[in-house]
């Protein structure tokens, strides 16, 4: 009996040791992959499509619907410092970059190649201190990926950075990149045909986040500062009435799913609602391409266009 107990203890001890080894082995395999950090969902999507299993991709703001307002804590920055590559959107998306210490040689701004094409966010606020010269904090619009041509350029930057990081994987990265750009270009063409030429319809945007979308695809619109989850009050009603009167607005584009009561209220006023997700944050049950396809459908709904491809 004693012998049997002894054997059982020995077996249990050894099997325990084996179980502990498994995660260590996994960690060792993971450690071999270069660690790549990203700061928003489009860049995450591009890096994931191009890098695939060859990289250890980390998206610390992944749980947020809008990472543009995210500020990493010191521990996250400390973890990012030891990464092999940090892919950022640029175009002022990461306002926190000026307040942190990251190794510049590891940071790649995916919008660097088209910095001359960046648009103003339209929100300019200037301040000065006493007799100092005034300085402007002019905002740069950051939703660059909503112009899918620029999104493809961002993907190219991601590919170049990954190839530089892992030259031995160049062939795989190039192949993945070609497939991704093909998808992006197809969708870009579909977007180009979604708004009829000579469009005069003016829409209202719940937030000024569609600068690149409107500029690339010819959408005319005026921006509000409305939150989808905030009930429309008297002032907001007044604001939209003005837009209806002055601009002939009949559609409002929301950045998130609006409250049903808001949709109903606007509908009674003759304003129809659609949602175009800016895609900055990780979408729940979809991905970047599907999300943009859904956005395309919303545009088609506004302009009554059909597939021409």
């Amino acid at each position: 009996m004693k012998k049997a107990i002894l054997i059982m203890i020995t077996v249990a001890t050894f099997s325990g040791c084996k179980q502990k080894e498994t995660p260590q082995n996994t960690a060792a395999v993971t450690a071999l992959k270069p660690v790549v950090y990203v700061s928003n969902y489009p860049v995450y999507y591009f890096a994931d499509r191009i890098g695939g299993n060859a990289i250890d991709l980390r998206f610390p703001a992944g749980s947020l619907s809008d990472p543009s307002g995210w500020t990493p804590v010191a521990d996250t920055i400390a973890a990012m410092q030891s990464a092999d590559l940090i892919l950022v959107n640029g175009a002022s998306f990461e306002n926190w970059m000026m307040n942190v210490s990251l190794p510049e040689e590891k940071v790649v701004s995916t919008s660097e190649s088209f910095k001359n094409q960046l648009l103003s966010s339209g929100a300019t606020f200037t301040h000065s201190h006493g007799d100092e010269g005034e300085h402007a904090h002019e905002g740069t619009a950051f939703t660059t990926w909503l112009n899918l041509e620029l999104a493809a350029k961002q993907a190219e930057q991601v590919k170049s950075a990954l190839v530089q990081l892992q030259p031995e994987q160049k062939e795989v990265f190039e192949k993945n990149y070609t497939e991704l750009t093909s998808d992006l270009n197809t969708l870009h063409e579909a977007f180009q045909h979604s708004v009829p030429e000579g469009n005069t319809t003016t829409v209202a945007f719940s937030h000024p986040v569609y600068q690149y979308l409107t500029e690339a695809y010819g959408i005319e619109g005026k921006s509000l500062h409305w939150e989808p989850e905030t009930p429309i009050n008297h002032d907001m009603e007044h604001e939209i009435e003005h837009l209806m009167k002055d601009e002939g607005v009949t559609w409002i584009i929301w950045e998130g799913e609006p409250l049903p009561e808001n949709v109903e209220k606007l509908s009674r006023m003759g304003i129809k609602s659609v949602v175009i997700t800016p895609m900055g944050g990780q979408p729940g049950d979809t991905d970047f391409l599907k999300g943009m396809e859904k956005n395309l459908e919303a545009i088609k709904k506004i302009y009554g266009t059909r597939d021409k491809l």
Binding site: T71, M98, N99, T124, F125, T126, H127, S128, H129, G130
Partner: peptide
């Protein structure tokens, strides 16, 4: 679009997680 602050607007003397985003 423009604000001219007087010298009475004091700068923060410590950078904390609460005020770090105000640094420019």
């Amino acid at each position: 679009s423009i604000a001219v602050a007087s010298k009475a607007v004091l700068s923060y003397t410590e950078i904390t997680p609460e005020n770090i985003n105000s640094f420019h």
